[in-house]
Design a binder for these strands. Structure first.
Lengths: 381, 381
DNA sequence: GATGATTTGTTGCAATAAAAAACATATTAC
DNA sequence: GTAATATGTTTTTTATTGCAACAAATCATC
């Protein structure tokens, strides 16, 4: 019967609210959902019984009236997050509200093959299993892959840096672990995490561009929902044309954003062989030589062109820069914003802000977990 | 009580279905919505009473079993569509299922001011009022404006060709007519119409680019819903960079799509002073001179660059070309598609098709009406 | 052309859950 | 200490859905 569907919908709404904004009082939930006091009471009650949420002591807010207890996510439900990279496979256990409970980085000598990744993941999960089964309830696995992923069936169509091509990742991982598996592009999951727990909290139209070692990926949230596109490949801002006179990139495109704006060129002018994010950023902030300043400005110039196209087509309220793009912007404060302002349609620009990613190294763990939690949040029963 | 909300939702689902696909039988509706036979019966019954739908004779489909009557939109509910242009104001009366019942084009000597447009519209509506009040029930007014519109309050921020700037159109029109008014960008409404009744029927990820006399606008549908952006300005593909060495456009952008791909340049190589869409297309199709062929290919080349950026960022299943862009593509069949294929990320391109707009001159009437109908469809009570 | 099979509309009934109302409780304000 | 206020709790009411049994209208078959 349909009352059932209504219930599910309401449970989903309340659990999602608690997940996104833990600590809201029952009274707050009543206001936010528009449901009746008694209904919220019943919904929260049911979820307490199901070990999805817990009620905390009423916080005394110095306010007239009976205190309303806070509602927070229960610690039991967890998701497993996996992120294969060029030199490691990171596996995490993440609770609701985006709490990373555990993170295990398994380094590999060479880029892992899919089968290696699955083997490593299964082994780590096997090791964690006692804990997962006693203290927690695992809702599934989310995988963040640096490449193009067909989200419908979790097939990695192309992940050049891992040298993966049409790999049925979800299927293999389900087989090896028994858990439900969802797979998506890493940048799409990055924006999911930033939207829910980071710089994009509560904003419903935003874009995210992430600068990685090997290229620029991104994600789009429009009207409050993640835009995946027809197959899940949306968000590849790295291939936007920014310079008709530029060089060809790996895919054969001329003057794409990735060709003009990249980490390698920054490392070159800084005279560094390799560097992690922090070192690169410190080097950029400390640099005074003209070549470095010029290169930073050159890259920001090209970045601004891609951002303008995105602003004009998507009219976001917020642009989040992750990876080395955040460092690049920080190295010349205000410069990028002024360029974008100068080149966008005035009215489209007036409402947009540019900011850095707020979630640090946990970003992909949280994003991948969010993907796995989506099922639970959509249907808490 | 919430059952009320459920009812509303179900009524909305059924009415939307009937609006999009008139003539479905009640049995079809049952299958499409997943609701129970008896529920659909009650819902349709209520909407028949409210004069929202009518039941037609069962079509004999040579099928075993009791025939199921067809359900079609009632002719009573209508929306008023208004489209101000540089040389005219067009006002239409449009029924559900996208039927344009009446279209009145009121020509103006000069681009109408907002107040003129409101005056003309109010006068025409006054004239139509007897008919609207007896035979029909008017749900509201939708306006398609060639410019940037803040959809939240119906303020036209900027419509350069009409020379409008920050005009409170919705407010003025409501005051003058008494109807509820919604305003949006013309291209955004074009895609709405094409998605619902034209080339994009049933497709949930598509983009639309419209080539007009004065520029290129567009719209985006992602995940089945129209992407408006933070303020409603999304879809301005015309300002995408396609040529770093290009000229400046009216807004001051260098080498934007609008600068390189435009109607005026086509008319110039064709030796035409002015032309309507049909004349332009015939001239293009009939032309054999190298200058024309070269110009067509040049423009298609730049168009392909903008399309690639859009494909890579939005991963649509369909690209619809309207206005002179459709004619341009028709003048060199297959050329544009091959260019886009060559420059996009392979997997992103494989699922995309390029096609022409299917709705002709009624496009904006239907789109604007669709905007006005949205309220009714969302809540048929 | 009558009978059965099949599909679908119709009607009555049971189950569900949400909202409203009445009541209870815990806090602040005075 | 009492009133005011806000919020949790319990009970009652109500709306709507889904199910089941039945009715109706068609096709297929002999």
């Amino acid at each position: 019967m349909a009352a059932d569907r209504v219930r599910r919908h309401n449970l989903s709404a309340v659990l999602t609210l608690v997940h996104h904004s833990p600590g809201l009082s029952r009274a707050d939930i009543t206001k936010a959902t528009g449901l009746n006091r008694s209904t919220v009471s019943a919904l929260v009650g049911e979820m307490v019984e199901r070990e999805l949420v817990v009620e905390t002591q009423a916080d005394s807010r110095n306010q007239v009236g009976r205190p309303s207890p806070g509602v927070e996510p229960h610690s039991a439900p967890v998701a497993i997050a996996i992120n294969p990279e060029i030199d490691a496979v990171t596996i995490g256990v993440v609770g609701l509200r985006g709490t990373v409970l555990k993170r295990i980085r398994h380094e590999t000598a060479a880029p892992p093959t899919v089968r290696e990744m699955v083997r490593i993941s299964a082994a780590v999960i096997e090791q964690l299993r006692p804990e997962l089964e006693t203290a927690h309830r695992t809702v599934g696995i989310g995988v963040a892959v640096p490449g193009l992923v067909r989200t419908s069936d979790g097939v990695v169509r192309l992940a050049p840096h891992l040298r993966w091509h049409d790999e049925p990742l979800a299927e293999l991982l389900t087989e090896a672990t028994g858990f439900e598996v969802s797979v998506a592009n890493d940048a799409s999951l990055g924006i999911l995490a930033e939207r829910t727990f980071g710089a994009g909290r509560g904003i419903s139209d935003l874009i995210y561009l992430n600068g990685g070692a090997s290229g620029i990926g991104g994600g789009i949230i429009a009207g409050g929902t993640a835009i995946g596109g027809a197959a899940g490949y949306a968000g590849e801002f790295g291939h936007t044309l920014v310079n008709s006179a530029g060089r060809r990139d790996a895919v054969g495109l001329v003057g794409s954003l990735e060709v003009e704006v990249n980490r390698a060129a920054l490392l070159r002018v800084l005279g560094l062989a390799s560097a992690d994010s922090e070192t690169l950023e410190l080097a950029l902030l400390g640099a005074t030589s003209d070549t470095v300043v010029d290169e930073v400005r050159r890259q920001l110039g090209f970045l601004s062109i891609a951002l303008c196209s995105a602003v004009n087509t998507l009219n976001p309220r917020l642009i989040i820069l992750g990876g080395f793009l955040g460092a690049l912007d920080a190295a010349a404060p205000g410069y990028l914003e002024s360029l974008v302002a100068a080149q966008s349609i005035g009215v489209s620009f007036e409402s947009v802000r540019i900011t850095r990613a707020a979630l640090g190294s946990d970003l992909l763990m949280i994003g991948a977990a969010e993907l796995a939690f989506e099922r639970l949040l959509a249907d808490p029963k």
